[in-house]
Amino acid sequence: MTEPGRQAVVRVEHLSKHFGAGSARVDALIDINMEVFPGQVVGLMGPSGSGKTTLLNCMACILEPSGGRLTLDGEAVYDEHWLKADLRRLRLDKIGFIFQYPNLLPFLDATDNVAVVLHLAGFGAAAAHTHAVELLDYLEVGHRKHAMPSQLSGGEAQRVAIARALANRPRIILADEPTAPLDSARARIVMDLLRRIAIEQSAAIIVVTHDEMILDRFDHIFRLRDGRLETATGELSLLPVGAG
């Protein structure tokens, strides 16, 4: 689904991933092709074991594909002899990740959970703190900036986690079931928030979900089954599902 005049932020070409060898070999991903453009929010759906998490891990640079090509914001990942440090830098500079559960560091308050990413990116203490507070305000949890993770509600914690994912203004935001621990009303609020971020930050957002209630929030939905992208007609390609 190339779009003339626009460059994909995430480009996956003939990507494959297998585990084990010989008779124990398991093909987790087979010939995956997809593109996600700036400002888009796309869904990644499929039954358990279909390869959603494996694909997300590959895009998050924590799992090396067995074959194919992955390009993130113009950088061909794993192309040459990529080092662990290069992957770490890519994750820090260009990828924001929203976990299924907030995964906040329990020993840092809400502000520092956001600021820690900025520190790692080289921000000074004052600048990191100011920017973290701005982000929390933007996500409407500024009033909880001094709260420890254990003192936050599920929705508040998830917003802090989103703020952390956005802290370094990444071009790519990957979200693994971000609405799973939330009720439907809060799930919709989170999805609307992601859409706003995608537009305002010109970021590409890929959301792994099982939640049928939020399907209308996606620009496209990629469905995976047995490691392959499938269409309604059985062709192996992108299945666009209307705009949100």
Binding site: A60, R91, L92, F97, N103, L105, P106, L120, A121
Partner: peptide
């Protein structure tokens, strides 16, 4: 926490 720190890019 260590896994999360690594995930967000901590060296």
């Amino acid at each position: 926490s260590i896994a999360t720190l690594k995930f967000v890019g901590a060296p």
